[in-house]
Nucleic acid binder design. Sequence first.
DNA 1: TTTGTATCTCTTGTATACTAGAGCTACAGA
DNA 2: TCTGTAGCTCTAGTATACAAGAGATACAAA
Lengths: 230, 230
Amino acid sequence: MSKQASEVAQGLAKQKGRTLSAIVELQIEQDIIDGLYRPGDRLDEEELAERLSTSRTPIREALRKLAAIDLVTIQPRSGARVSRPNMAQIIELFEVISALEGFAAKLAATRATDEQLAAIIAAHDTCEELAVSGDAKAYFDANGVFHRAIWTAANNLMLIDQITAVDKRLAPYRRQITFHPGRKQDSQSEHAQIARALAERQPEIAEKAMQEHVMILSDDALQLARDLRL
Amino acid sequence: MSKQASEVAQGLAKQKGRTLSAIVELQIEQDIIDGLYRPGDRLDEEELAERLSTSRTPIREALRKLAAIDLVTIQPRSGARVSRPNMAQIIELFEVISALEGFAAKLAATRATDEQLAAIIAAHDTCEELAVSGDAKAYFDANGVFHRAIWTAANNLMLIDQITAVDKRLAPYRRQITFHPGRKQDSQSEHAQIARALAERQPEIAEKAMQEHVMILSDDALQLARDLRL
DNA sequence: TTTGTATCTCTTGTATACTAGAGCTACAGA
DNA sequence: TCTGTAGCTCTAGTATACAAGAGATACAAA
């Protein structure tokens, strides 16, 4: 885990106007989302401090912030670990995000500007191409763009914050899902249904379609979590 | 602001198994929710440290955590203030919480145990009594109990976390709403509608009723925010 | 009077030193 | 061998010292 991260860390040019604490926070968060640190991994303060060439103070502040959004779990006098939700909690998180993303789709159906709608369609088209030709990683990224385009079209920044927060916690599990064979095709037809509902400005249909789309991911994620012996 | 808080702070018996940092966090959070610190108020580290009889370190960690959940806003090298969402953001937050609480009601309609349903009805009855006889503060608290009973009946802990997080941010605005004359009666009939839908196990109706109930609060909160010249 | 700038102050950001509790280790007794 | 406990070690929690940037202040020039 240390080699690659270390190099990334060295590349951290001291950014202006940002505190070390904030830079460290972003770095650790990204490492967790990227899977460099996996759920359950210990996050030793001194080790991190050395790796990121700072004192423990900014590390501690960063860990506290990550703990506040539940990406990290701190046991008093024992230390920080990457949070490892159990199966029940993963299901619950997917339920929450399905509700939030469903709501986003519902709002988007009535509020999306023409440009925002166009962006959604464009993202959908990209997914379509990559579903056939591209590699799994590319499709995963394109999928993210599609979803975020819908969040944006809801025109509610607080909602985006909220979805993003939950999304981060699910990242370690959600990441691998689209790699499953056959899933891409299914996902595409679901996306198509959602995109159509949005284009036709049908809030209820868009909401329901999105909710179901997300909950199907939940099943896959659970399978994955099971494979990882959670 | 300092007098009352100071006394509260002195009352902080050093709790076992809890870090100072955690105690301080809870204290500041409660002070914000209680309205002791109002949106926009400056949170001076040294002043807080003296008030709570600690060094700056636990204060800083607490403030960082509160900033992570957006209850506090930190401007680098300038300090922390109680977050002050603008009107648009308040509306957005109410939209988000209406979606989440609506979802909770929907889940509760199918998942609530008999005991949980009984608790909801009981809370509703308490509200009913207080709407007629009690003071505003008592009604506000009972209202909270009613809502939380529904969150609980959704049987999804992550959802509760999420709702709670948003609820905290709205606390300064939501707090005064039930004080408005006449609102209590309206609120009660809405509660009755929700309770009935839950008892009859009708998810869609419960969801819609809850969503509307919350969005009506939004209007009141906005009026309040306007009065406070936000 | 106003505006620009230099300096100074005051708070925050970071590092380091010190304290203390959790959990491991090793040894003694059953 | 197993179990309980003493103590030891190692990391986290807290305090304090030091650095640095933002914003205030005061003065000079237009």
